[in-house]
């Protein structure tokens, strides 16, 4: 435990589990969206806005974006850990990834609730 190498992982089950839970959330959202596209598409501006702007769809899409950002963090962290060996570069990339994902999470949810 003393000589742990700094890789940015938590050495635990938590991220593994969250990666899968978020995957299921996104899979359900994608199936719903594909179904709507096939059944109701193509959309006009009004019907598109009405679809996404409904409370349930807004909440579900917010959950989708949050899941996406957490899921992407786990995946990107794996990629950086596997291929980027210098610790300073790997940590920099991980920090940039986290900051980008937080920014995109706030941006996407803010725009959804501004409709």
């Amino acid at each position: 435990m003393v000589n742990r190498i700094v890789v940015g992982a938590h050495y635990g089950l938590k991220d593994w589990l969250i990666q899968r839970v978020t995957a299921v959330v996104m899979a359900v959202w994608l199936v719903v969206m594909l179904g709507l596209l096939l059944l109701q598409g193509p959309f006009s501006f009004e019907s598109w806005r009405a679809l996404i702007g409904g409370f349930c769809m807004r909440a579900f899409t917010s959950l989708f974006f949050l899941s996406l950002m957490y899921h992407a963090w786990v995946g990107l962290r794996d990629i950086w850990m596997d291929y980027v060996k210098p610790v300073w570069l790997r940590l920099s990339l991980q920090v940039l990834t986290v900051l980008a994902l937080i920014w995109w999470a706030v941006w996407s949810i803010a725009l959804l609730w501004r409709i």
Partner: peptide
């Protein structure tokens, strides 16, 4: 690829709405 596309897709969603 999908990670890199996220900001462009959010921007497209924002414009479209």
């Amino acid at each position: 690829l999908l990670f890199l596309a996220i900001p462009f897709l959010i921007y497209a969603l924002q414009l479209s709405l």
